[in-house]
C-alpha cells in the first residue's frame, strides 16, 4: 500500500512551521512505511501531490482559538465542512476528493489529518512558540503510530 505523509506549513512563519518541523523528524522515523512530503501551497494546487497514493496522513497547523496551543486534533475528511470556497486557494479536502472521484483520478481512499492548534500564524521569521515546540514530539509519535497501525492492519489481512 502506497502511503503519503503530507506535511503542510511554512517554516518562515512562526508556529506555521510545525508541519515542516514534523516532516523533517518524520523522514528519519518512517522508513519504508510512507513517503514524507512537505509543502507550503494551498487548496486545489495540492491535488497532484495526492495522486497515486492509497493512504495519506496530513499534518498541519490549525488556528481556532478553541483549544490550548499545542493540542493535537485527529480528524477525518468527513469532519471538515462541505465546501463553497470563494477561491481555489481555499479549496477544501472534501472538494479535492470529489474532484478526484469525478475525474477518475487515483486518490487516497483513506486519509487521516493531524492538526495542531497553534498560537502565532502571522509573524514572519518568528520562532515556534513554546507550547508548539513542546508538543511537536507527540505529534510525530502520533503520525508514526498511525502508519504502524495501518501497516499492521494491512499485514493482518
Amino acid at each position: 500500500m502506497k502511503t503519503l505523509v503530507l506535511c503542510l506549513g511554512n517554516d518562515l512563519i512562526a508556529d506555521d512551521a510545525v508541519g515542516i518541523a514534523a516532516a523533517r523528524q518524520l523522514r528519519d522515523r518512517v522508513g519504508d512505511l510512507a513517503d514524507v512530503e512537505e509543502s507550503a501551497v494551498s487548496g486545489a494546487a495540492l491535488l497532484e501531490i495526492f495522486l497515486d497514493y492509497e493512504r495519506a496522513v496530513i499534518v498541519d497547523a490549525i488556528h481556532t482559538h478553541r483549544h490550548p496551543p499545542g493540542t493535537i486534533l485527529k480528524l477525518r475528511p468527513g469532519d471538515l465542512g462541505q465546501v463553497a470556497a470563494p477561491s481555489p486557494h481555499y479549496a477544501g479536502l472534501p472538494e479535492l476528493i470529489v474532484m478526484a472521484e469525478q475525474m477518475e483520478l487515483s486518490f487516497p481512499k483513506e486519509i487521516v489529518i493531524f492538526a495542531m492548534e497553534i498560537e502565532d500564524s502571522l509573524t514572519i521569521g518568528g520562532e515556534m512558540t513554546a507550547p508548539i515546540r513542546q508538543a511537536l514530539p507527540q505529534l510525530v509519535e502520533q503520525v508514526v503510530d498511525q502508519l504502524k497501525q495501518w501497516e499492521a492492519d494491512f499485514s493482518g489481512v
Binding site: L8, G9, N10, I13, D16, S39, A40, V41, S42, G43, L46, I58, D60, A61, I62, L80, G81, Q82, V83, A84, A85, P86, S87, H89, Y90, A91, G92, L93, P94, E95, L96, I113, A115, S121, L122
Partner: peptide, 11 residues
C-alpha cells in the same frame, strides 16, 4: 498568507 489547512475558507 500561507496555505490553508485543506478545509474550506468561509467568508
Amino acid at each position: 498568507a500561507t496555505h490553508a489547512l485543506p478545509g474550506q475558507m468561509p467568508l
